[in-house]
């Protein structure tokens, strides 16, 4: 059983749909008990960093997630809040599960960075929609190129994995990536 955290940030349904397509049992929940009891947790999210953290705080889920030991997957905004700080419309504290900050993509090109871009290591195209990005550091497992900016696309540390792109919207390759994570659960 996978718990998909429902914290009023949009796009949670598409993650639930993707789990269904893979034949994985998943529930939408914001109950700490259900999250703790699940075999793994997905933190989805489209929206802004500060709002996402505030919603998690209101639901009393921040410490639950910080202390979570089973596999955790953050998607898009859900990946960004895994980091220490976010600078979208202010400065906000993140979950701090992965070292680094989330800042506006330093580019002259169009923002949002929207559409299909290539995971350079995996050599496959996945769907991105975002204007902010995590620091590129030792926790960056794969990246894509936007102009000459290296955007961290898959990040990880211990039980925590994050995708800046939307695996649930990335066709076959996205399904493969989700399947690989589900296999860890």
């Amino acid at each position: 059983m996978i718990a998909i955290i429902d914290y009023n940030v949009g796009n949670v349904k598409s993650v639930l749909n993707a789990c269904k397509r893979l034949g994985v049992t998943a529930v939408l929940t914001n109950s700490a008990d259900e999250i703790v009891a699940a075999d793994g947790v997905i933190l989805p999210g489209v929206g802004s960093f500060g709002v996402a953290m505030k919603n998690l705080e209101k639901l009393g889920l921040i410490s639950v997630l910080r202390e979570y030991k089973k596999p955790m997957l953050g998607i898009c905004l859900g990946m960004q809040i895994l980091f220490e700080r976010g600078f979208e419309g202010g400065e906000f504290e993140g979950l701090g599960l992965i070292k680094g900050d989330v800042k506006l993509i330093p580019t002259e090109q169009k923002l949002p960075h929207m559409g299909w871009n290539t995971l350079e290591k995996r050599d496959g195209d996945v769907y991105f929609v975002h204007s902010y990005m995590a620091d590129y550091n030792e926790h960056t497992l794969d990246y894509c190129l936007y102009g000459d900016v290296k955007i961290p696309a898959i990040v990880g540390r211990g039980n925590v994995l994050g995708c800046q792109f939307h695996p649930e919207k990335s066709g076959k390759i996205g399904e493969e990536i989700l399947k690989e994570w589900v296999a860890l659960v």
Binding site: K13, S14, A18, K20, R21, Y127, V129, E168, K172, E175
Partner: peptide, 30 residues
């Protein structure tokens, strides 16, 4: 459509209010 597609879906036509937006997104539009 959203249950069956694994690529983004845009929906338009007759969207007039924030509630219309919310409903379309809640149904699975991206």
């Amino acid at each position: 459509a959203a249950a069956n597609l694994s690529i983004p879906l845009t929906v338009g036509g007759g969207i007039r209010t924030i509630d219309d937006f919310r409903r379309a997104l809640a149904c699975g539009a991206d």
